[in-house]
Write a protein that binds this DNA or RNA. Structure first.
Lengths: 195, 195
DNA sequence: TCAATAAATGACCGATCGGTCGTAACAATA
DNA sequence: TATTGTTACGACCGATCGGTCATTTATTGA
């Protein structure tokens, strides 16, 4: 890892939680300089401008999220276990694995009307996440673990919506009650589909 | 309505869609001056500062949302019809009744880490919306319209989460497919509980 | 080891930010 | 209609915004 690569990585790591909590518009370069302990000129060695940095930070955060999910699920064998692992990842939206909460929700809702580039990046991962859930259910049906009358695609959509909605509710409430109700409800629904 | 009241109302009306699409941090006073055709000093006749204006705009938007929901549901008689009316309100997140989309989602996700006052305002309406759904289900059970084994509170939480999650997904995707799947799924679930 | 290359610095820039205030225009009311 | 209180105005303020660049310092590879 060259010096440049290390510095670039440092900036992304330090800037990511700022953008994810305060938003892109709400985060200034001086905020980033403060946490990185770098001078302003250094930022521009590694990034074209604030917009470019924001886009790279989004990539960085979405990669992290994808990895967290991937790791948690790959540890499990059965479809049910994998789905439960996914749900468990989001059980505590007030102390989330990624500071500031789900970047899909945060960046997505800020960017939907303001930044087409970010919107598309977020969209890609939203699609991938649903595809992931869907594939697990479909494979579960194929192996006979899950009942075959289950609409995998529809379930993927509703499950994803419930999780994101639950995160929103819990973060707004300042407690995790909503998310716990939702997790229980989702797990019941899955349990009913296990043969 | 005095002159002051009219001007104040004008500012709220014109500023609301700006805040709801670009966010509070992403909206400048000059943006607001442009759409209101007012001079800067006028803003400060009616509001203390930008933060105060933002809080009043949030109140204004949440009142509007509450009214839209209230109006749509009060037209209907049965519990099923009322719940369907609620769902139908959100069927087209790309052309929503409130410009910029659901203010609970927009303001909520921006404010959860940055503005406690807004967070609490949003929280109140989120609670009220759930309570509303819950009451309708409970009354439906009492009148015998709905099956009595239905957990009204849990349903209110999951339904609200699904709708908000569906809005998020559709706005990020740039189409309404996700929301339509969710609406259909919710309506099926309700239909199954009708006696 | 040392020359060539790259990264880091921070003073500096114009633009824009949120906010103030003296003055002019207007509205309300007696 | 005259008077008084209110609203609207916009030049102005200091601070901060995102961004540049000549110079210094550090890294790299021959």
């Amino acid at each position: 890892m060259t010096k440049a690569e290390r510095t670039r990585q440092l900036i992304l790591e330090k800037a990511a939680p700022l953008f994810n909590t305060k938003g892109v518009a709400g985060t200034s370069l001086s905020d980033i300089l403060e946490v990185t302990k770098l001078a302003k000129g250094s930022l521009y060695v590694h990034f074209e401008n604030k917009e470019d940095l924001a886009h790279e930070v989004v990539d960085y955060q979405l990669d992290r999220l994808a990895n967290v999910v991937e790791t948690a699920m790959s540890r499990k064998k059965t479809a049910k276990e994998k789905l439960f692992a996914y749900i468990d990842l989001y059980l505590d939206p007030l102390n989330p694995p990624i500071i500031g909460g789900c970047p899909l929700l945060n960046f997505g809702m800020e960017a939907d009307d303001t930044d087409e580039v970010i919107r598309k990046k977020v969209h890609q991962l939203v699609e991938k996440a649903q595809q992931n859930i869907r594939s697990i259910v479909e494979r579960g049906i194929e192996t006979g673990e899950l009942k075959s009358d289950w609409d995998a695609k529809e379930f993927a959509t509703t499950m994803f919506a419930m999780v994101e909605g639950g995160i929103m509710m819990s973060r707004i409430a300042g407690n995790n009650k909503a998310m716990q109700v939702i997790a229980r409800s989702l797990k019941n629904e899955i349990e009913e589909k296990v043969n």
